[in-house]
Write a protein that binds this DNA or RNA. Structure first.
Length: 268
DNA sequence: AGGTCGACCTGGCAGC
DNA sequence: TGCTGCCAGGTCGACC
């Protein structure tokens, strides 16, 4: 599933193509995706215009002309495709009054869609840490969080209450760029390393957005296209291949049940 | 309270 | 070919 750069790419694309469009109908092919919605999902969308599309963490937020919000959690395999071909993974179709359509596809059905009057109704948003590009995300904040935990730094980067939007791919790439071993206890990092983590987090995420994210198995951007950042991944899913920096083989370990990829030679 | 683990669900792939 | 087991980008709740 998409992490912050992929969701940001989708949101930017959809803003260009969908802003101002009016929902003429919503077809639910798989009601399981609406399991969080109490009732009247379609009724709270139909006939309304899209004012804009935004992002918080990895969630897509469609601002409706009623003042309500359509919140879409893509999770691992969700895709929002404007004017694509419906297939067996198409779970919802949003039709617009101009004849165009937006498809929500989701192979694993982990995704969820809800309409809320207030974003605080989404529990997840209330515990989410700062956006990495916001002014709240500072070396001082990282330092404070790191000091209070015994966890490995990789697990802390993945923790969405620490900072929003970083998933497994970018956690690995940030640590590689910062030359920090993912198994190090966060509290043991030096001030210089904390500063590096801060800088590399922003650098990697911005670069990934510039390249329209990266496609592993299922990611597609808002135009149904694959992302280009995959070519620039140094460690993720590259176990056994040479490290771009020192040419030693990349290692794969498991941390809290998730794969971690790193160079044991140049990540200290 | 903080941290880990399994569950959620589907499908691709490697190995036999 | 067909089976089994493992793996996958996220998040939540149960449990230690």
């Amino acid at each position: 599933m998409p992490e912050l750069p992929e969701v940001e790419t989708i949101v930017r694309d959809l803003n260009k193509s969908l802003r101002g469009k009016i929902f003429s109908d919503v077809i639910v092919h798989d009601a399981f995706l609406l399991r969080q919605q109490q009732k009247d999902f379609i009724g709270r969308i139909k006939g309304l215009a899209i004012e804009k599309i935004a992002r918080r963490g990895k969630a897509v937020i469609v601002h409706l002309s009623s003042g309500e919000f359509l919140v879409i959690q893509l999770m691992m395999t969700g895709q929002l495709i404007a004017d694509g071909q419906q297939d067996k993974h198409t779970r919802l179709t949003f039709n617009f009054s101009d004849g165009s359509a937006l498809l929500y596809n989701d192979q694993r059905r982990f995704g969820q869609l809800r309409v809320v009057a207030d974003l605080s109704e989404i529990k997840h948003f209330n515990i989410l840490g700062p956006e990495p590009f916001s002014k709240e995300f500072t070396p001082a904040l990282i330092s404070e969080k790191f000091r209070k935990t015994v966890r490995p730094v990789k697990n802390v980067l993945l923790d969405h209450t620490f900072v929003a939007g970083i998933g497994n791919i970018y956690a690995c790439e940030i640590l590689y760029r910062g030359q920090v071993n993912p198994r190090r206890q966060a509290r043991r990092l030096t001030q210089a390393e904390v500063k590096t983590i801060h800088q590399k987090t922003i650098e990697v995420l911005k670069e990934a957005i510039d390249h329209r994210g990266c496609s592993m198995r299922n990611y597609r951007d808002g135009l149904g296209q694959v992302g280009l950042f995959k070519e620039r991944l140094a460690v993720y899913a590259r176990q056994g291949l040479p490290c771009p920096r020192c040419h030693q083989p990349i290692r794969r370990i498991t941390q809290s049940g998730r794969g971690t990829f790193y160079c044991g030679h140049c990540q200290k």
